[in-house]
Write a protein that binds this DNA or RNA. Structure first.
Lengths: 342, 342
DNA sequence: AAAGGTTCCGAAAACCTTTTCGGATCGCCG
DNA sequence: CGGCGATCCGAAAAGGTTTTCGGAACCTTT
């Protein structure tokens, strides 16, 4: 049996219908359904029954029109296809869903025109706030249009320091990774990074070098920048083996690079983790758990970042708006490539 | 310079303001801005100027309240974290964005309670339609609540054949894959599938076997079901080499399985594609392009599936609602693992 | 100059809910 | 029995837009 075959055209019940059925005025019906005072228990009951019978659902548009707040926010991503938007999105959706907020999703596809268009549409829908999710951690220009609702930038900070931005702590992540390797007893550590054009690569490298210096260690070779791909990992590992064969750990710019490094190390007869420990970045499960051995990685806590952005926006709605850049801590996820037996 | 520092509290301009500034009535202002007749060119110009000056943006809530249509749709996913929702989402968002529709995103996280709650919220916001995106191609129960707007199920079809569902053609995909292998001159084809519990695995196997039979060929060994992971690919390939070493192609249930198979084949001295051709499913770029050699795969065209679902919903809004299951074609993406030199 | 037609504009209703405030009813006390 | 307080209910306005329809002004034609 289909669940009450959609009565198309049968205008959905309004509060007036409920009131009529319950034999009260709309005002009373409203108060009864919203738990306001000055309604007798009996009346409240009658109204509730009537509402249930008509499967009444209050029209949020009318409510929003009156209240001046809609209970909606816009989530503007610049690149949905990218791997990093999604977890942030999930975290934000999660945090808002709990707070009775609904989320408009817009993907600008990296196009400024489309972005402006989407912002206009969202403002026209009277969203209470906006989260702008970038596709890399490099700063991005602030929204072009004049926006009269709070805006929170997530992942990619705004170039305007007056805006509120939530970003992962890549420097801390690099530091954390090296500290883990040192804790595993490694001292001859090389860093095969990703694309030098990304601040994520540079920040992680900076954190890693700082942690090495703090421990009185020098890196093995230069930081090797390339791409974020497996192929670069394979090539860079080969070069490292040729030039600086005396290393006992490799910190990689991404999980994909680490996969490539693992492949080359295995082919060249180095055992992981016995001879060489290997770490990745991003903790992309499909990459880390499919690897042999499973790959230790640094999780950027993107879902938490999304939740944080959502909470920040939520606070900014109605209250005064925060400013500046806030970071979210990363965390090391230990697997077999650095610690045997895990 | 910050772009006009958000004038909080400075009530956004309304049509009344525009009308006053232009020295006309709200009715005229409305008609002027919406390109209606019965407005002189001069007046239209004056109103447009006033609107621009106040950076007027019409209140969609009021408009929706009046029109009975909001220009919004709900996108209800059951599992955002899964790899398949996202491209569908993108396709849908793309198709709707072009049509001036805005998309509410909700993730039910596979929880029926949460799903019902989200549906209620969406109906309360008076969405014009609903797309329900599943996390696997297995049929799912139809929405529990009585919904009086069109619903389209994407990826996972509804169990109710009266509903409209858009799904990938997995049988056709399996057939297509085998046909490609045969076209590459292979005749001794094995199939290492994924998790038997998924209809996607069974459908692809059925299509593959049908194509083999059509070509007068028999598969090498049984269809091997396991998981969707790399580890299963490695293990299954090893077993295949032990039991039925005489094969010249392996069709894998997923790109991850194919990665595992590639690893084992390389380690056991079989060259790809010279000795053995290997194919995956899903065309997950990070898996296929990182592999050595790059992996031929079958793309399910999920983005197109999302667009198709969006278009179907769009048509159903206002018109009569379609029924039944429609499929979207898959396509083979050829890379080095089946055809050398590509 | 009057009649008729054309062109443009404005008043008002409609959409649905919430809130305010005045009015009505009832019970209780003096 | 009158007055008072408490309790509950309803009329009406507000929110911003679109649409309908009546009215005003102007031009053309006889």
């Amino acid at each position: 049996m289909a669940p009450s075959p959609a009565p198309r055209g049968a205008r959905t019940a309004t509060l007036t219908d409920v009131a009529r059925l319950a034999g009260v005025s709309v005002a009373t019906a409203s108060k009864a359904l919203n738990g306001r005072n000055h309604v007798s228990a009996a009346t409240r009951e009658r109204v509730a029954e009537a509402a249930a019978q008509l499967s009444f659902s209050p029209n949020s548009l009318a409510r929003g029109l009156l209240a001046g707040r809609t209970g909606t926010v816009g989530l503007l991503t610049s690149d949905l296809v990218g791997r990093f938007s999604l977890p942030i999105l999930m975290g934000a959706e999660d945090a808002f869903g709990a707070g009775e907020m609904s989320v408009f999703l817009c993907d600008a596809r990296g196009d400024a025109i489309r972005e402006r268009h989407h912002v206009q549409a969202l403002l026209s829908r009277r969203v209470d706030g906006l989260i702008v999710v970038g596709s890399s951690t490099d700063p991005r220009p602030p929204l072009a249009a004049a926006v009269d609702v709070p805006v929170v930038y997530a992942y990619a900070p705004s170039e305007n320091p007056e805006d509120l931005s939530i970003v992962p702590d890549n420097v801390g992540a690099g530091r954390m990774a090296v500290e883990h390797l040192i804790a595993c007893g490694r001292t001859r550590i090389a860093h095969i990074s990703g694309d030098r054009g990304f601040s994520a690569a540079r920040d992680r490298a900076a954190g890693a070098l700082a942690a090495l210096a703090d421990a009185g260690l020098a890196p093995v070779g230069e930081v090797a920048y390339g791409t974020w791909q497996e192929g670069w990992g394979r090539a860079a590992a080969a070069m490292l083996l040729d030039r600086e064969p005396d290393f006992d750990a490799v910190l990689c710019g991404s999980d994909q690079v680490a996969r490539g490094v693992l492949d080359t190390l295995r082919e060249r007869g180095r055992r992981v983790p016995e001879d060489v420990a290997v770490m990745g970045f991003d903790d992309w499960r499909v990459m880390t758990t499919g690897a042999r051995p499973q790959l230790t990685s640094v999780d950027m806590n993107l879902e938490e970042l999304g939740r944080t952005a959502a909470r920040a926006l939520f606070e900014a709605i109605g209250a005064e708006h925060g400013r500046g850049v806030r970071t979210v801590q990363c965390r090391v996820v230990v697997r077999g490539s650095t610690a045997p037996g895990t």
